[in-house]
């Protein structure tokens, strides 16, 4: 039930934490997402997979209310996000943590201040308590020792872990991860994956993770949606995905160059363009 007033979610027996109903979204005239419906129960770690530029980040932006769908509705914890007033949206965002693709640490603040940022902005806690909380969060991602470094002094994996610490500073009810594994070495990647799973289990957060990294994420996920060309083309549990015979899923999981997703960008006939054919 929505604690913020406004639009109530009515179904009684089954309560998904997140629900998208027939959502379509376009930037200008360029359609990005078309008729997407999905639901995610509380406490689950769910991934949205798809190629680059297929609209995964856009989907997260819909969930956080940064963009509004042209049609359909987005529900988070019983609130219809696209109809919330600015104040209610702000209140919802305080219970939401988002890990951006490249961390998005504030470059003018050091690690400690970055993690302290949401605490300082949204609470009136005394300095001593902020300090303890920040060190706890940093300890959770294993980077308590970096508290006094600037973001520019961190490696990519460390930045993302600090960003994770910042995202969980207010113990969010919903975590959104935007490609948490991109550009990391295998060790850093494994560390982040373990952290994400552990976080979900410990805090009972619901989490949506956008990624195109199949192999690592299948080990930690509860459920997967595949998106291609703005539509959901397949879904299932990690086990179902592994044994799936769906050609798109096979191509994605095996990493084959050509399949339902074409290798070649649409173009005129090759032979004709080279002038070999009249």
């Amino acid at each position: 039930m929505c604690l913020l007033g406004g639009y109530m979610y009515n179904e009684t027996d089954y309560k998904p934490f997140i629900e998208l109903k027939n959502v379509s979204f376009s930037y200008g005239t360029k359609p990005i997402l078309q008729d997407i419906s999905l639901s995610i129960p509380q406490g689950k770690l769910v991934a949205i997979m798809g190629g680059s530029g297929c609209g995964k980040t856009t989907l997260l932006r819909l969930l956080s209310g940064q963009v509004k769908p042209q049609s359909g509705s987005v529900w988070v914890d019983g609130c219809e996000v696209n109809r919330l007033s600015d104040r209610d949206l702000l209140a919802l965002r305080r219970r939401l943590g988002m890990l951006f693709q490249f961390g998005a640490l504030f470059t003018d603040l050091n690690v400690f201040e970055n993690v302290a940022f949401p605490l300082r902005e949204h609470t009136q806690l005394p300095e001593a308590m902020i300090r303890d909380l920040v060190l706890m969060k940093l300890q959770a991602v294993g980077l308590r020792g970096t508290a006094n470094l600037m973001p520019s002094q961190l490696s990519g994996g460390m930045s993302r872990r600090v960003a994770l610490a910042r995202a969980i500073a207010l113990d969010p009810a919903l975590m959104l991860y935007d490609e948490p594994f991109t550009g990391l070495d295998p060790i850093a990647l494994g560390t982040i994956a373990v952290l994400i799973r552990r976080l979900n289990d410990a805090l009972k957060t619901t989490a949506v993770m956008v990624t195109h990294d199949v192999h690592v994420s299948l080990n930690i996920l509860d459920y997967v949606y595949f998106i291609a060309e703005g539509r959901i083309v397949a879904q299932g549990t990690p086990h179902e995905v592994r044994v799936s015979t769906d050609p798109f899923v096979r191509q994605f999981v095996q990493g084959e160059a050509d399949g339902p997703v074409r290798l070649h960008y649409p173009a005129a006939d090759y032979a004709a363009e080279l002038g070999l054919k009249q």
Partner: peptide, 11 residues
């Protein structure tokens, strides 16, 4: 994305 991050944090 620092500005986006801030907005998502409700700031």
């Amino acid at each position: 994305e620092q500005l986006d991050a801030m907005a998502v944090m409700g700031v």
